[in-house]
Design a protein around this nucleic acid. Structure first.
Lengths: 266, 266
DNA sequence: ACCTGAACACCGTTCAAGT
DNA sequence: ACCTGAACACCGTTCAAGT
């Protein structure tokens, strides 16, 4: 935590993206390119985070992976948080957003249905959170002003404007969709991570958890309710259940947007 | 992270709540009560987490606060994670849920409107996440089967059943509401925490961030869009903006539930 | 039954020094 | 310009020992 003394000494860190200016980027001199640069460091960081999780990642572990001493990385990056911010924005680049200047007229028919576009963006974000479970805590921690996160926000805003919602409802609607996806993807990612850490499939883990809970006092009726809901959902695997819930909830939110458009329309 | 070797040695930790049985609880012998017990340890843990944040909390720091050596706590708790699970469930007890056996008939008029009940639960959960920003990462990490979290889930299920949704849509609707609240409260809590760490009010922090971003290339138009949306929202403080967005989004999701009820009704 | 002290294997980061 | 080594002030947890 930040204590008063720390605060007096230096301004609180805001973001890597608000740094002095372009950082040394390898291959500076005439010789062969240096083995290290921000891109390579970021790339290996993402790989390690995927493999070991946020808690398992350390500067020393990273340095070892780069065949370099622990402190070398600090030449390219001021703090571990800077590095995590870089990794975070890097994976936002995986999202594959639609070309942004194409179709400048939001009302044209060829612009495509906002519902489909919203579904694509939401699914992409969900997949990102599930593929990289360390993304979720970082999204909560940092300012998210890297180029790729900004491109994502920009795209989200553009699509939400197409709904026909009044301006005062835009940010609320964005929250309803993407904070839902954030929460959903976070929990789904953690659950997959947990079963992987236990060395079993999600389905096996689910069965184990269920039978472990069977014995616990006061939980039996909750379990019964859950099983009832699971039966009704009809999914045969855990993954299928997540899939059905996600799409039902997304349809629900989209219907909510349509209702708000009608309500505030006239 | 868990490596293969660790896995072979012992079964993966699941939850404090699935432990052998009741733990030593102070005042065991005839003399004056021991200074330590799980309740007191949990209480101090919550206080420290509130004050220092999840990153600032440590077993050694906790022991110091309890005027005890670092290892004493391990008599009452197996791991730090156990302790965090206890703290997590403890704050879920702050939610003040409606009495659960009252009004057993879900169709009776006096049961109250599910919309109001949903709003109460959602607001309570949001406040919890904002008041204790360390709750959010823990909700994502653990199984959430402590008595108070279970009571919360149970209440949520009961209210959602009153909407009239078909059974196969219940879990999706729960996700649409409470994963949204989870995401929203997480981000809101972090933003308040960030400004507090920087020693300024949320409004001051917001101004600072805005002017810092003014210089950054490629962000100007995003800023302009954001300012436009803020104008339209009409909130005068950051807190007011969060408030408006939250309630707009919640209304939106509730409208979505109503739409799904109608759609699947006949 | 409860608590301690020393130790192990880690952290992020600073700082002076090397090439 | 880039990298190293030693050091500082921390971690969670184990283990043998005390009372």
């Amino acid at each position: 935590m930040v204590r008063a003394a720390d605060r007096a000494e230096r301004p609180a860190r805001t973001s890597v993206w608000l740094e002095g200016k372009a950082r040394r980027s390898g291959a500076a001199r005439g010789g062969q390119p240096s083995s290290l640069d921000r891109d390579r460091i970021t790339e290996v960081t993402v790989r390690l985070l995927d493999a070991e999780g946020l808690a398992g990642f350390s500067m020393r572990r990273l340095a070892a992976e780069l065949n370099v001493t622990a402190m070398s990385v600090y030449w390219y990056v001021d703090t571990k948080d800077d590095l995590l911010e870089l990794a975070l924005d890097a994976v936002f680049g995986e999202l594959g957003l639609p070309d942004q200047d194409q179709d400048p007229d939001p009302k044209s028919e060829s612009a495509g249905d906002w519902r489909d576009q919203l579904r694509t963006l939401a699914s992409g974000y969900r997949d990102l959170l599930v593929r990289h479970p360390w993304v979720s805590p970082l999204v909560g921690t940092f300012l998210n002003i890297g180029p790729n996160s900004v491109a994502f926000s920009r795209t989200v805003q553009r699509v939400i404007r197409r709904t026909g919602l009044p301006t005062h409802g835009l940010s609320g609607a964005i929250a309803a969709v993407f904070q839902f996806v954030y929460g959903f993807g976070t929990i789904e990612g953690h659950s997959i991570q947990r079963s992987a850490a236990a060395g079993v499939t999600p389905d096996e883990y689910f069965q184990q958890a269920m039978s472990a809970l069977k014995g616990a006092p006061g939980l039996d009726d909750v379990l019964q309710d859950s099983e009832e809901m699971m039966q009704a959902r009809g999914g045969r695997t855990v993954e299928e259940m997540y899939e059905r819930d996600f799409h039902f909830a997304l349809d629900l939110v989209i219907s909510g947007i349509e209702a708000m458009v009608l309500r505030e329309g006239q």
